[in-house]
Nucleic acid binder design. Structure first.
Length: 248
DNA sequence: CAAATCGGACGGTCAACTGC
DNA sequence: CAGTTGACCGTCCGATTTGG
């Protein structure tokens, strides 16, 4: 994942925040898509969702963790000429707040409950989470929220001994599901609160939709991570995915 | 039925441009 | 020089195809 803080594409993501009373949610279930800054070569090739962790979930799932390396980005073209810019809407400054796409309210179909009647979010899903200490190095520090902006949190995850679930992971690329791997250790998930009773590696026992990210120590899969993958090391040619034909 | 493929929508970045 | 704009390029959704 994008190390999506909470929820996925179809659930309420962290960067959304509660609607003021009386304001109808713009798009109830579908929020803005979040992307990782740099997908690994495997995900890139497959055009599949990657995450910030290395190895990423998808690579781990497919047992190609050691091949999980960042893809190389092309350099942007420079010196591209631009035409004259459009004026902003003539009226200048402000956009009518009601016309702003973000604020557009959807008519509530008959039979649909009002927004306030949406199912309550369990506290552990609503609580802010963050990465475990020591993992911050991989990610830019969360910015302090500007007024009107939702605060950013590091997603937090831990790994623990957990009875392996019956592996029937579905969902795209096994998102939010367990994947086949040696028993005893289990993928990380986000934690609502500080890990109290579960030790240094743990998983919240009540998160069925555990989003996962790899802990930096590579502890959970010793046979896979006998040695840490060389960070950003050499990897062959970046894009070999479906024809985009813009390479040179 | 699951996995692989891939077209194309979507999102982020950043240099060119504009106006103060 | 800060703010705006829009092209460029990467990500990944979701439909389709392929293979066991």
């Amino acid at each position: 994942m994008t190390v999506h803080p909470v929820g996925g594409y179809s659930s309420m993501p962290m960067h959304m925040y509660p609607f003021p009373p009386g304001l109808v949610p713009p798009q109830p279930l579908r929020s803005k898509r979040r992307q990782v800054k740099n997908a690994c070569t495997n995900c890139q090739k497959a055009c599949k969702k990657c995450d910030d962790a290395r190895p990423c979930l998808r690579c781990v799932k497919y047992g190609i963790a050691e091949e999980c390396v960042d893809s190389q980005r092309k350099e942007r073209k420079k010196g591209v000429k631009r035409g004259p810019y459009k004026k902003r809407d003539g009226k200048g400054s402000n956009v009518d707040i009601n016309d702003a796409p973000e604020q557009q309210s959807m008519p509530i179909p008959p039979g649909m409950p009002p927004p306030s009647a949406s199912p309550p979010m369990p506290p552990y899903m609503a609580a802010p989470v963050g990465y475990a200490a020591g993992f911050y190095g991989q990610f830019p520090a969360p910015t302090t929220p500007k007024p009107g902006e939702a605060p950013a949190y590091y997603p937090q995850f831990y790994i623990t001994h957990v009875p392996p679930p019956n592996h029937n992971g579905h969902g795209q690329d096994g998102e939010q599901q367990g994947y086949a791997q040696p028993a005893q250790f289990y993928p990380a998930t986000f934690l609502p609160y500080a890990p109290q009773p579960y030790g240094p590696y743990m998983v919240h026992p009540h998160r069925p939709d555990a989003q996962m990210a790899m802990a930096p120590q590579y502890a959970p899969f010793p046979q896979l991570y006998g040695k840490p993958p060389s960070a950003g090391g050499s990897h062959e040619n970046g894009r070999s995915d479906h024809a985009r034909g813009d390479d040179n």
